[in-house]
Design a binder for these strands. Structure first.
Lengths: 106, 106
DNA sequence: TCCATTCATCGCAATATTACGATTAATATA
DNA sequence: TATATTAATCGTAATATTGCGATGAATGGA
């Protein structure tokens, strides 16, 4: 059905999955790396960096914004996208937690 | 078009995105947490834990196997799924790297 | 004011994902 | 051998994602 069931999972599981899903595309990984490296904040510069059309990049930016990882501020004619530090730290913690809890098996 | 462009991105970006995509569903997060906690390795126990049908869970297990995070060993009639330690550590490193490189912006 | 620039959104097409029941294959057990 | 158990796979339906061109809205400059 293409629709993801969320009942029966914890809120933390659903949120972590949503975060991971947002990272689940090379373009969005590249965008975050670009912003984290602070090469530029300007949307147009991001578009120039990626092998995708402006409208497609805009959609990817929207997804990252929806999950809260970035925010966009209008700077005159252009838009400055930035990583949301609070969400970034939280995401880092959640992901780190997932990977740190590991006991060898079988 | 539903198809993800990979040309123009680095191999690392494509791989990290593939990993994140595999984590991008609550069921797969839950499966990994369950295995990491080593509550059990048996496929049937995972199915019992999740609010999804056996065939759906089997598909999620397959995706995690495809990305290399887990492996399945046949144990008589049942199958023992385990986290692949090597892939797990590598994934941890890649994710940690992404989140560690961050300079405050604007 | 008129125009260029910037970026979001719409509409579409192609493909992917999610979910489930039914079936199948393999193994154990009676 | 016949049967039950386990888990993968098939087939199908519904929905989501990806990508792009075209269009729109907003801003700044000539």
């Amino acid at each position: 059905m293409g629709i993801t069931k969320t009942e029966g999972f914890t809120k933390a599981q659903v949120e972590l999955a949503a975060l991971a899903k947002a990272l689940g595309h090379p373009a969005r990984v590249a965008i975050l790396q670009f912003l984290a490296a602070k090469k530029s904040c300007i949307c147009g510069d991001i578009v120039d960096e990626l092998p995708l059309s402006q409208s497609t990049v805009s959609q990817h930016l929207k997804e990252l914004k929806n999950v809260g990882l970035i925010k966009g501020d209008i700077e005159g004619p252009s838009v400055c996208y930035c990583i949301d530090e609070k969400a970034w730290i939280k995401a880092q913690k959640n992901v780190t937690d997932l990977f740190s809890k590991f006991n060898t098996c079988c």
